[in-house]
Design a protein around this nucleic acid. Structure first.
Length: 677
RNA sequence: UGCGGGGUAGAGCAGUUGGUAGCUCGUCGGGCUCAUAACCCGGAGGUCAUAGGUUCAAGUCCUGUCCCCGCUACCA
């Protein structure tokens, strides 16, 4: 990294349809912020870019649902997100948004440049159009009957009943969500970026020249490239977004993933008139901090756009993190399964650094990790309080007790003293190495070792004993202990900025820079330090219990809420029902179908014959326990091959909203083959 | 089923280019009493999922198998 003059740090733009949670922080913003603060401490030229991503279909749907405009939605969440980042201490040089004028202009301009250079291919296809609302319909704006399971409220892209992914034009009886009318098929033209043409270049750029990228990033890219890239539409028929700035594109906007990463550029332009040096100078090193769900956009699509444009630099590294889980479950905005940043800041005022510490110490750098409140408490009480806070407090209290807060001189240093001071320099270079390789959890551990070193130094030196026998020696012990504390204000500053500011206050010093780290003379003899004050407070069991209860209540609320009973299907004639031959049968054998999660292979004595049925119930029943059970079964359903086994019928099951299955069984034993009518 | 990631001490996690398997918590024993019952030292606890291969040397590289997570498919 020494070959670069400056560093441009971007962090994924949070989508403005909800607040920010700990998963976003651990994956993207905390590591990006540590990196930015570190480079600033090193007195490097650096800017750190962030902003809200405010376009796309989900925001229009949310607006419609709440009866407000898309602009209202993004205004609301942009404010919450921006304010909570600021209070949390994410040190963006600018936090912008993609609905800004600057962004609209910038994205349009880049699109037009690519258009004029002939970098797009134009393609027309038939899509659904609502004549009353006078607009094309995004997949989510169309409902209809699923061609696979006949569920009547399938969406244009997916059926939520059977889970199949669909094409809107395959829906039976399609209906527009906007007007309720039947949409008509109409030709529409879109612009595609022919990613396939960039494949050889991407292969060389990533697979040959960036082997140092993290294995999850490199692996994902390789898999995309090996699978072959297809042209990707970069425009949409939608009225929320950036209008496509060419003729014949009325009513079309840029695809959200085309415009969002360009938001990094627009934000830079807003920040400084001198923006080209950040984006068009090969001496600038660009780093994208993202989560693993964004890898393809930042490593394949956005670079292809920049390459097509021709005058921009490409990312030097894309340190994507995995996901953070919460108490064993996947974090989910829609299920409210999250620790929201704005709520954390209310519940734990002044404890920004505790969350920063926990999220860094347990960051999902190589695999998905789990956040638990018990771990949060343990790391605060056993590490921040016991190791770091306690060391600082010991040093300050001793200074107060023995010297009234005046720093004594360090003279006649022993070999041990010198070894301790040398270790500071060693810890400095190790911390640097880890940060520069994006291993922040390791870097934090090493930085904390400096506090551990201080505790050990005091324990080994025992100044509280020496004060009686060798008071001269105690002076240098206290001096060195305070020098260690002063070094902590540098090495931990990127990780714990609020606490280090407080510690500088206690030591009564100004902010120091990274190049001073490791020095034994950061504090002058005779300098007066402040009265000791605790750097971190213990977190009590009750506070943790409150948070755990909050989550349990969410879980309960989710179970209640997710129980909408599906509306009745349309009427049928008796003859339709009579076509079905439903019988009582007995399960005589049951075994799991190898390599499947849900399938059981059952042998059923139907009274008519003995037959094989494959049933998707393995998650709810153990094979041994259902043998001998009487079940209801549709026996005249056409056979179907499932995982190489012919299934000759279907067991009737009742299923609730959570997907839990129960048998529909006769309430008392009855002969196999008995008809259900 | 396909793709990606992962399986390392009781729990949660590190382990860079192969070179004595480590950290935090917990646990057991000791020391200390300046410090927020905090700190320091020591012990116990691991066939690094599994089978094979390459190598003087494999947690690390190669191959097969099993299991877990995410997306995907299967739910007659």
């Amino acid at each position: 990294m020494n070959n670069f003059k400056r560093t441009l740090i971007t962090s994924a733009l949070p989508y403005a349809n909800g607040p920010v949670h700990i998963g976003h922080l651990a994956g993207v913003y905390v590591p990006a912020d540590i990196y930015a603060r570190y480079l600033r401490l090193k007195e490097k030229e650096v800017i750190f870019i962030g902003g809200s991503d405010e376009h796309g279909v989900p925001i229009t749907l949310k607006a419609k649902k709440e009866g407000i405009t898309p602009q209202d939605v993004v205004d609301k969440y942009h404010k919450i997100i921006k304010d909570s980042f600021a209070e949390f201490g994410i040190s963006f040089d600018i936090y912008s948004r993609t609905s800004s004028k600057m962004h609209h202009e910038t994205a349009s301009e880049i699109f037009r440049t690519l258009y004029e250079k002939g970098k797009f291919i134009e393609q027309s296809s038939e899509q659904f159009f609502d004549e009353e609302a006078n607009q094309f319909l995004a997949d989510r704006y169309i409902t209809g009957t699923c061609p696979k399971c006949n569920y009547e409220k399938a969406y244009g892209d997916q059926c939520e009943s059977c889970g199949s992914s669909l094409n809107a034009i395959d829906l039976i009886h399609p209906k527009s969500v906007l007007s309720g009318n039947k949409p008509v098929l109409k030709k529409t033209k879109h612009w595609f970026l022919p990613l396939d043409q960039y494949e050889p270049w991407l292969r060389e750029w990533i697979l040959e020249n960036h082997k140092e990228w993290k294995s999850n990033v490199y692996g994902q890219c390789k898999s995309w490239l090996d699978g072959g890239l297809n042209p990707r539409a970069v425009t949409r028929d939608l009225d929320w977004g950036i209008p496509v700035p060419v003729e014949g594109a009325e009513g079309k906007v840029l695809y959200v993933w085309f415009d969002a990463p360009i938001g990094y550029i627009s934000a830079t332009k807003e920040l400084t008139d001198d923006w080209t040096k950040w984006w068009k100078d090969n001496d600038t090193r660009m780093i994208h901090f993202i989560g693993k769900d964004n890898i393809v956009f930042h490593c394949i699509i956005f670079p292809a756009i920049l390459k097509a444009e021709g005058s921009y630099i490409l990312p030097d590294n894309v340190p994507a993190n995995e996901f953070l889980n919460l108490e064993g479950d996947k974090i989910s905005t829609s299920r409210n399964w999250a620790v929201w940043l704005h709520e954390y800041l209310e519940d734990f005022p002044g404890k920004q650094d505790v969350l920063r510490y926990v999220l860094t110490a347990n960051a999902p750098e190589t695999k998905d990790n789990d956040f638990t409140w018990n771990d949060f408490q343990a790391r605060n009480n056993n590490e921040l309080v016991a190791i770091l806070g306690n060391f600082v407090n010991r040093a300050l209290v001793l200074t107060q007790n023995y010297y009234h807060g005046i720093i004594p001189p360090a003279e006649n240093l022993s070999e041990y003293d010198n070894n301790v001071l040398a270790e500071l320099i060693n810890l400095k270079s190790e911390t640097e190495k880890s940060i520069e390789n994006f291993r922040f959890r390791e870097a934090l551990k090493i930085a904390m070792d400096m506090a551990r070193l201080g505790n050990k130094y005091l324990a080994d030196m025992e100044p509280w004993k020496l004060i009686k026998s060798d008071p001269e020696k105690v002076k240098s012990i206290i001096n060195i202990s305070l020098q260690i504390a002063a070094n902590l204000t540098i090495v931990l500053d990127p990780f714990l900025p609020h606490s280090m500011e407080k510690l500088r206050g206690l030591l009564n010093i100004e902010k120091l820079v990274w190049s001073q780290l490791g020095r034994p003379d950061l504090l002058e003899t005779g300098h007066k330090v402040a009265k000791p004050e605790l750097l971190f407070a213990k977190i009590e069991d009750e506070e943790i219990a409150r948070q755990v209860n909050k989550l349990l209540e969410t879980k309960k609320a989710n179970e209640m809420e997710s129980a909408p009973v599906k509306p009745a299907k349309s009427n049928i004639e008796y003859d339709d029902f009579a076509k079905m031959d439903i019988r009582i049968g007995t399960i005589v054998t049951a075994e799991k179908v190898a390599k499947t999660k849900k399938l059981l292979k059952l042998t059923i004595e139907t009274g008519i014959d003995t037959r094989t049925v494959v049933s998707g119930i393995a998650e709810y029943f153990e094979p041994e326990k259902i043998i001998g059970k009487q079940v209801t079964m549709l026996v005249n359903l056409a056979p179907k091959m499932l995982k190489g086994i012919e299934s000759q019928g279907m067991i009737l099951m009742a299923e609730n909203e959570e997907g839990t299955l129960v048998f529909v069984s006769p309430e008392m034993k009855i002969n196999n083959g008995s008809e259900v009518k």
